[in-house]
Design a binder for these strands. Structure first.
Lengths: 354, 354
DNA sequence: GTGAAAGCGCTAACAC
DNA sequence: GTGTTAGCGCTTTCAC
């Protein structure tokens, strides 16, 4: 509900035009004001050492006085180095990206680098193959010194500056930071199995996503390692939503031989499981143990009294940024692929059987 | 803990160099390949109508084949219109910015605009006066068609393209989106007072922040409106943290005549209040009613069974973006200042007195 | 130590 | 309809 304040009556951008009147301040303006040539100003801007102290200070004074800043566009075009790193994301608002930003923000703080997050509104072009490549080349080699890309396919990317991929879904040739979906799911299963559970229900993620596949792989691998059977009836195909989690859990609970534990592939479906357990008049963990998995610590921890798997996506952002710094700087990497560790947050939602 | 995968042994950027070998693809390459002039390619790129269908398709074919994308830097420099809007934030990772991104992402989705979030790592320059201006002019008038700025001071900003300010702390002359801190706090108090509470404790925010001042104003105004006294003993100076919230609440609860309700200025201090109430062996709401305030719905709602004030920062981002679109498009604004509505989420944490 | 001038990739006159 | 050309603001030789 828009609140119209007094001053807002039929606003026309008058004031705005006033403040916009000023034309862009260029290096020529600074040169003119300082009584030197543009090249001298450029030298001062880039801290070249062949400028006399006297001139340097005079120019710096003028720059400060005028409040001049070089245009990113012009600088980018002319020189390789911009001190800007870029992040390419599909959707600015999704939790994964947001979590990533935290880590990237942390990594960049205190450095001399600036950060540009680039995201396109044209959804059509985002589903279309090759959008990453197109957006990438818009920044790469001009505005940014290096890029972090959150995209499933990196194979077809060709670029000029260093790149670090976040959770690539192909055999990528770039340095990358990857999730521990399989390992995390395995760890959950090992834990449940160690508690004595033998029949463990699984609520899978949205079909088609790699996280779904990997988490389910972890589930199955752990069973196999423990010599337990993989029962199709215990595996419900979910979609990472609470509603579906609810229905899947109901299906599991009404099985002739219901599982003693349920493992949900993300926080939302875990919530659905909790709903279903309560609706069935059962209690956690007395009747059934419940575990959830999530990328984002806060999401997982927001569910009280539920054992969860944390896997910090923000850590992925942090590591990726530091890898990129190294690449830009020309140093060799400590690892080409970094797998973020997982953490099992154990609460009272699981009960030991016997 | 870094996980070194097999392929990561002493990695040197060999592969990378290979993929980086390709030099930037320019408009000239496309022109050459299509057998036309650069201006024709430019015309095709910008969908000018004076190109023959034949030529148009030939050029488009080459563009697609080569995977060419125009350089943002070059385009920005030459033409006013880039179809990119920029957001300037101090800290990429703070909850306020992240929440804003959600709304901005939502607003931009499906439009023809791209989004650039700009943030600087140089913390020193961020505390320094005028950083906004410097960063702004780096993008403004070159890369972006308009900007959204999250900064307390907007007075000294001069720019070329439209600007929308988020929660400016000065008498700004730009279109802005502002918080409802005062109104929200007032609404909470009206609610508590309507329940019959007369002695309401307040845990203030971090001194120096405008949100702190405004929320406290709301607290005091509501008391005055109701003809109730403002008792200094009931107002604790907090800092938006859980720990301080805890200590402040303890102080309130051990008063000779303790309040029947406590209003915490944010979600964290509300958590501290809950801790203190429980530690004192008291219960909510039987012994004391508790309310929390927060900008971010999720934060406030994450506290179970606590009445909270929501004020969606993401909504601020959404509205700001749409205001900016209008400005860029040259349309007049519906309002120059938009105040985001607040919402009281009432749960069982408050008890009616008498 | 400083200036003049070329040109980065692109767009927008202006020719033809 | 299409090509030629002059810059946008900047960095970087190359003179002086």
């Amino acid at each position: 509900m828009p609140v119209l304040l007094p001053e807002s009556n039929s606003f026309t951008p008058m004031l705005l035009l006033m403040t916009q009147a000023k034309t862009t301040l260029t290096i020529r303006d600074v040169a003119k004001a300082a009584g030197v040539s543009v090249s001298t100003v450029s030298r001062v801007l880039n801290d070249k050492d062949d400028v006399s102290t006297e001139t340097y200070e005079k120019v710096q004074g003028v720059i400060a006085e005028l409040g001049y800043t070089s245009s990113l566009a012009a600088t980018s075009m002319r020189s390789r180095r911009t001190n800007v790193i870029g992040i390419l994301v599909v959707d600015m608002g999704d939790p994964f990206s947001l979590e990533l930003f935290k880590g990237i923000g942390r990594a960049i703080r205190g450095t001399e680098y600036d950060l540009i997050v680039y995201s396109s509104g044209r959804i059509a072009s985002n589903t279309e193959l090759g959008w990453e490549r197109r957006h990438l080349s818009r920044l790469d080699g001009s505005i940014t010194d290096g890029m972090i890309v959150v995209t499933p396919t990196t194979n077809e990317l060709t670029l000029i500056s260093p790149l670090v991929a976040i959770d690539p879904h192909d055999d990528n040739i770039f340095p990358a930071v990857i999730s521990s979906n399989r390992e995390g799911a395995s760890a959950v299963m090992d834990y449940l199995i160690s508690l004595g559970h033998r029949r463990i229900g699984y609520i899978a993620g949205r079909p088609g996503l790699l996280s779904t596949t990997h988490r389910q792989q972890g589930y199955q691998e752990a069973l196999q390692r423990a010599g337990l059977p993989i029962e199709p009836a215990l595996i419900q195909s979910g979609d990472y939503t609470r509603e579906t989690g609810f229905h899947c859990a109901q299906a599991l609970l009404t099985l002739p031989d219901p599982p003693t534990a349920i493992f949900a592939a993300n926080d939302q479906s875990a919530l659905g499981v909790i709903d279903a357990v309560h609706e069935a008049g059962l209690s956690i963990p007395d009747d059934v143990s419940v575990v959830g998995f999530d990328n984002i610590p806060q999401a997982a921890r927001a569910i009280p009294a539920l054992t969860t798997v944390d896997q910090s996506v923000s850590e992925m952002g942090y590591v990726a940024t530091n890898m990129l710094f190294k690449l830009i700087h020309g140093s060799s990497l400590d690892y080409q692929i970094y797998q973020v560790p997982i953490q099992l947050v154990i609460r009272e939602s699981c009960r030991s059987i016997q």
